[in-house]
Design a protein around this nucleic acid. Structure first.
Length: 287
DNA sequence: AAACGGCTCAACCGCAGCATC
DNA sequence: GGATGCTGCGGTTGAGCCGTT
């Protein structure tokens, strides 16, 4: 508010970072730790604005960033989380600690949006919105799962997707990152894993509310029905009873343990089976 | 080989939220 | 309580790459 744009100053360099600049930035952060970005340009002598330094670090140089193809599992998680949270890329990225919000955002805009659009067109050309698409997609995937349908086995092996490999991003930046990995192991966990930032906390509260059955079905919770379907699929009673049961068990867990209870939705999202969603997308002739 | 168009992704921009004074 | 400073987030851009003609 009322803050002059830091990048408007004369003599501030823009555009792609050079390996030399990367080394300077990484060396500085190695010594002082990330943060206090305002002072980074003056202390390092970099002709970059503080914002540019922070972005370069968080999106590129930070150790532990996985680059290359997204796995079907990651794809499935992004689809679920986008349907649940909307375009809250930072919140979504907190569930995929190896991926940056920028990466996820780019991947959504360049790949998944198109896939879902195609899927929508194939399902029902009259459906209007991406939200509806996602909803349809999720419902279909869960219906298939409920029916114990092994999608991959119904295709000839030649048509099955090859195990998507995570390619290594061969760059000087990654080499710098690798050098830093040892240092990071002895340092506190990055904030993305902390889940204590204001946004992450709010999202977790949302999940807690859901688990405690405080939330009602609403348009803002497009996967609620899928969630219910999943709960029903898990066996036992109806979804409402199951949710209450989960809330009760979570309550007991949190009373007995100092560690926060693992959200049911989080478990669901992290479930290996979520990968099948991505698999389905890869396998479907529509995509 | 050159021109063209589509795609990818690093980087930028503007705004909002939070902390501090 | 308002002004200021800093950081984080989401949307957008554009340079460069790649495949096609």
């Amino acid at each position: 508010m009322g803050v002059p744009p830091c990048c408007d100053k004369a003599g501030i360099k823009k555009g792609p970072w050079t390996p030399e600049e990367d080394i300077i930035l990484v060396s500085y952060i190695q010594e002082h730790g990330p943060g206090n970005w305002r002072s980074v340009p003056t202390k390092t002598g970099l002709l970059r604005c503080s914002k540019s330094c922070r972005l370069r670090w968080t999106n590129y140089l930070r150790p532990g960033i996985k680059r290359g193809n997204f796995t079907p599992h990651e794809e499935g998680m992004i689809i679920h989380l986008q349907a649940l949270l909307g375009n809250k890329w930072a919140a979504i990225a907190s569930y995929l600690p190896q991926r940056t919000d920028n990466d996820i955002k780019n991947y959504w805009n360049t790949h998944l949006k198109k896939k879902l659009k195609k899927f929508q067109a194939a399902l029902d050309p009259h459906l209007p919105s991406d939200l509806t698409t996602t909803r349809q997609f999720l419902n279909k995937s869960f219906n298939d799962r409920r029916g114990n349908l092994d999608v991959s086995s119904s295709f000839p092996s030649s048509l099955r997707p090859s195990q998507s490999s995570t390619t290594t991003y061969a760059s000087s930046a990654e080499n710098i990152s690798r050098l830093l990995e040892g240092w990071m192991r002895s340092s506190p966990k990055p904030d993305t894993l902390n889940l204590k930032g204001s946004l992450q906390e709010k999202e977790l509260q949302k999940y807690d509310d859901l688990e405690n059955n405080k939330l009602v079905k609403s348009a803002s919770m497009p996967v609620f029905e899928s969630f219910q379907a999943k709960v029903e699929q898990e066996g036992g009673g109806g979804a409402d009873e199951k949710v209450q049961d989960i809330a009760e068990r979570n309550k007991q867990r949190s009373e007995n343990s100092s560690t926060p209870p693992l959200s049911f939705i989080e478990k669901w999202l992290l479930d290996e089976n979520v990968g099948q969603v991505g698999e389905m997308m890869e396998l479907s002739p529509m995509f």
